[in-house]
Deep mutational scan, measured.
Amino acid sequence: MKMAVISEHLGLSWAELARELQFSVEDINRIRVENPNSLLEQSVALLNLWVIREGQNANMENLYTALQSIDRGEIVNMLE
């Protein structure tokens, strides 16, 4: 549920979040190519990849820290 809210509000910031979460330029470009027409779909794809990559370590605290690092703390505030 929280992931959906984050995806809805990320907009163009999804790529900046991807870099903050240590995704490569290739990963970011692949997300763009696979989801060409929708920032929402790109955001969802990023968060899904992050959960798959991090497994047990994919917790909201880590995601909140990354969001705050890219000056998107207002998204965190909405969810708390």
Rank of each mutant, 00 (worst) to 15 (best):
W50D: 03
F23R: 01
P36I: 05
P36K: 07
W14V: 03
E61A: 15
L63A: 02
Q22N: 11
V5C: 09
L12V: 14
V33Q: 14
S69M: 10
P36Y: 04
V44W: 13
S43W: 02
N37F: 10
N29M: 11
E16P: 11
L40K: 15
E80R: 09
F23H: 01
S38K: 06
S69G: 11
V76I: 14
R53Y: 01
D27S: 10
S38Y: 02
Q68Y: 08
G73I: 05
N62C: 10
E41Y: 07
Q56L: 09
R30Q: 12
N62G: 14
N37D: 13
P36Q: 15
L67T: 00
H9C: 13
M3E: 07
T65C: 13
L21S: 03
D71H: 09
W14K: 04
E16V: 12
K2M: 10
T65N: 13
A58C: 14
R30P: 00
H9D: 01
R19N: 06
M78K: 15
I28N: 01
E54S: 10
E20A: 10
L63S: 03
S24P: 08
M78V: 14
L40E: 13
V51A: 11
S13Q: 06
E34W: 04
V25M: 12
L40F: 13
R19V: 11
G11H: 14
E26N: 13
H9G: 04
E41G: 11
L12T: 14
V25R: 12
A4L: 07
T65S: 13
N29L: 10
Q56Y: 10
L47D: 02
L40Y: 09
I31Q: 03
N35V: 09
A15D: 08
A45N: 08
E61Q: 15
V25H: 15
L17S: 01
S13T: 05
S7M: 01
N57I: 03
S38R: 05
E74V: 01
I31N: 00
S24N: 06
K2W: 15
S24K: 10
I70E: 02
E16W: 03
L79P: 07
R19T: 11
L40C: 06
A66Q: 05
D27T: 08
R72I: 02
V25D: 12
R53T: 03
V33W: 11
R72Y: 00
E80P: 14
W50Y: 13
P36S: 07
M78L: 13
E34L: 08
L21C: 02
R19S: 10
M1V: 13
L17D: 00
N77A: 14
E8P: 08
L46P: 01
S24F: 01
L39C: 14
T65A: 13
V25E: 14
L67W: 00
E41N: 15
L46H: 03
Q42F: 01
H9S: 01
N77K: 14
Q42S: 06
L10S: 01
Q56I: 15
S43Y: 01
E74Q: 05
L17E: 08
I75H: 03
L63M: 13
L10N: 03
Y64D: 02
I31G: 00
A4G: 14
Q42K: 09
A18C: 00
Y64H: 06
K2I: 13
R53I: 02
H9L: 05
E20K: 06
Q56G: 13
G73C: 07
V51W: 14
P36W: 08
L46W: 03
I75P: 04
V51Y: 13
T65P: 15
W50R: 01
Q22E: 12
Y64M: 09
A15C: 08
V44Y: 14
N77C: 05
V5R: 04
L17T: 00
L12S: 15
T65M: 10
P36N: 11
V33H: 12
L79V: 15
S38G: 10
L12E: 04
R30M: 12
D71S: 08
N57A: 08
H9M: 07
G11S: 03
G11C: 02
A66T: 02
N29W: 10
L49R: 11
G55H: 06
S13V: 04
W50L: 06
W50G: 00
A15H: 08
M3R: 12
A66L: 00
L12D: 10
L17H: 03
L12W: 05
K2S: 05
A15G: 11
S7F: 10
Q42W: 02
H9W: 08
P36L: 02
G55M: 03
E41Q: 11
Y64R: 05
A45G: 08
L10Q: 01
Q56D: 10
G11P: 00
H9Y: 06
V51C: 15
I70P: 02
E16L: 09
